[in-house]
Amino acid sequence: KKKYVIKVYFEDTGKEVEIEAESKEEALEAAKRLAEELGLKIKKVEIYP
């Protein structure tokens, strides 16, 4: 089964997080949740198959 690796870059902090997920949708949801939890804004998202 294919996994996606999503790199999320946050504004202000210069922080980046990698998330593995089964689908792009799932990964983007996780990225949004994470940003909310951390109180950060997402600057850029890169998706690698």
Score class of each variant (00 low, 15 high):
Ile47Cys: 08
Glu25Asp: 14
Glu16Thr: 12
Ala30Gln: 08
Glu29Thr: 14
Lys1Phe: 10
Glu22Phe: 05
Tyr9Asp: 02
Lys15Pro: 13
Glu22Trp: 06
Glu26Gly: 14
Lys24Gly: 13
Lys32Ser: 14
Glu20Met: 13
Val8Lys: 00
Lys24Tyr: 12
Val5Gln: 08
Lys2Trp: 15
Leu28Cys: 02
Lys1Trp: 09
Lys44Arg: 15
Val45Gln: 02
Val5Lys: 11
Leu38Gln: 04
Glu22Arg: 05
Val5Glu: 02
Asp12Phe: 10
Leu28Asn: 09
Lys1Ala: 13
Val8Pro: 00
Asp12Pro: 10
Val45Lys: 01
Ile19Glu: 01
Glu18Lys: 09
Ala31Asp: 00
Tyr9Glu: 07
Phe10Ala: 01
Gly39Cys: 06
Glu26Ala: 14
Lys41Glu: 13
Lys3Asn: 09
Gly39His: 08
Glu25Pro: 08
Glu11His: 14
Pro49Cys: 15
Glu18Cys: 15
Lys32Gly: 07
Val5Trp: 12
Glu22Ser: 05
Glu18Leu: 14
Ala31Glu: 00
Ile47Ala: 05
Lys24Gln: 08
Gly39Glu: 06
Glu46Thr: 10
Phe10Glu: 01
Glu20Asp: 06
Glu18Gln: 13
Ala30Gly: 10
Glu11Gln: 13
Ser23Tyr: 03
Ile6Gln: 00
Glu29Lys: 09
Thr13Glu: 09
Glu16Cys: 03
Lys44Leu: 06
Glu26Lys: 07
Ile6Ser: 02
Glu18Gly: 04
Glu18Ile: 14
Pro49Ile: 13
Gly39Pro: 00
Lys32Met: 09
Lys1Tyr: 05
Ile47Thr: 05
Lys3Ala: 09
Lys15Thr: 15
Glu25Cys: 04
Leu40Phe: 05
Lys3Val: 04
Lys1His: 11
Gly39Ile: 01
Lys3Gln: 11
Ile6Cys: 02
Ser23Gly: 04
Ile42Asp: 01
Glu18His: 08
Ile42Thr: 00
Ala30Pro: 00
Lys44Tyr: 12
Ala27Glu: 00
Lys32His: 14
Glu36Gln: 13
Ile19Val: 04
Glu46Asp: 07
Leu40Thr: 03
Val8Asn: 00
Ala21Tyr: 03
Glu11Thr: 10
Ala30Cys: 10
Glu26Phe: 13
Glu26Val: 11
Val8Tyr: 03
Gly14Lys: 15
Val8Trp: 02
Ala21Glu: 09
Asp12Gln: 05
Glu20Arg: 07
Lys43Cys: 07
Glu36Ile: 10
Pro49Tyr: 15
Glu20Cys: 05
Arg33Lys: 13
Glu16Pro: 08
Glu20Tyr: 13
Glu37Phe: 10
Lys32Asn: 11
Glu11Arg: 04
Lys32Gln: 09
Leu40Lys: 05
Val5Met: 06
Val5Pro: 01
Ala31Thr: 03
Lys32Pro: 01
Ser23Cys: 08
Glu29Pro: 02
Gly39Ala: 03
Lys2Ser: 12
Ile19Thr: 03
Glu18Trp: 05
Tyr4Trp: 05
Ser23Trp: 05
Glu18Asn: 07
Lys1Arg: 11
Lys3Cys: 14
Lys41Phe: 12
Leu34Asn: 02
Ser23His: 03
Asp12His: 08
Glu25Lys: 08
Ile6Lys: 00
Ile19Asp: 01
Glu11Ala: 06
Lys1Gly: 15
Ser23Ala: 03
Asp12Ala: 05
Glu29Asp: 10
Lys44Thr: 09
Val17Met: 09
Ala30Trp: 15
Leu28Ala: 06
Glu22Pro: 13
Ala27His: 01
Ser23Asn: 10
Ala21His: 07
Tyr9Asn: 03
Glu37Gln: 13
Ile47Phe: 08
Val5Ile: 11
Leu34Asp: 01
Tyr9Met: 10
Lys7Gln: 03
Glu20Ser: 09
Glu18Arg: 04
Ala31Arg: 00
Glu11Val: 15
Thr13Trp: 05
Leu34Glu: 03
Glu18Val: 11
Glu11Asp: 13
Leu28Trp: 14
Thr13His: 06
Val17Trp: 12
Lys3His: 13
Lys43Ser: 07
Thr13Val: 09
Ser23Lys: 02
Glu37Pro: 01
Glu16Ile: 15
Gly14Asn: 14
Ile19Met: 12
Gly39Arg: 03
Glu46Arg: 02
Lys1Asn: 13
Glu46Trp: 05
